[in-house]
């Protein structure tokens, strides 16, 4: 792997978890990308912040609860999780409501981080 090029990949998650398939698809692609030793970061914006809400119980809607998998990301060496403060504020969420450790950033900080990426993948 020493000769391979490491690029900066950012996954931008902007959808709530169960209404559409975007959140789950993103998570699966992240897990696969993690195998390629790239610089991976995840950003949660807009309704995407709901993906990280604690205590999701999906039994009654008969959809797999994939929220525990976000806690596996650390083991996959995916450690850069960013959440936009403005999106959390607008939805009545705080860092304590989230099921993983994240870095909370302002809109401007997220925007600047986005500009630095080689590849931005939108979900």
């Amino acid at each position: 792997m020493s000769e391979s090029v490491v690029k900066k990949f950012m996954f931008v998650n902007r959808k709530a978890p169960y209404g559409t398939i975007y959140a789950l698809e993103s998570l699966e692609v992240v897990l696969i990308t993690a195998a390629f030793d790239q610089d991976v970061s995840l950003v949660f914006l807009d309704d995407g912040v709901f993906q990280l809400k604690k205590s999701q119980q999906t039994k009654a809607i008969e959809i797999k609860n994939f929220s525990p998998t976000y806690r596996a990301l650390d083991g996959y060496d995916v450690e850069k999780l960013y959440v936009e403060k403005e999106s959390m504020d607008a939805r009545g969420l705080t860092e304590d409501d989230l099921l993983v450790d994240v870095t909370v950033l302002s809109s401007a900080e997220i925007g600047a981080l986005m500009n630095e990426q080689d590849v931005v993948l939108s979900f």
């Binding site: 897990l31 993690a34 797999k64 994939f66 525990p68 806690r71 596996a72 083991g75």
Partner: peptide
């Protein structure tokens, strides 16, 4: 049971 996925080999080995 904990993470709801089967780990990749690399992750399993480390864990």
């Amino acid at each position: 049971e904990e993470y709801q996925i089967a780990p990749a080999v690399r992750v399993l080995t480390k864990a």
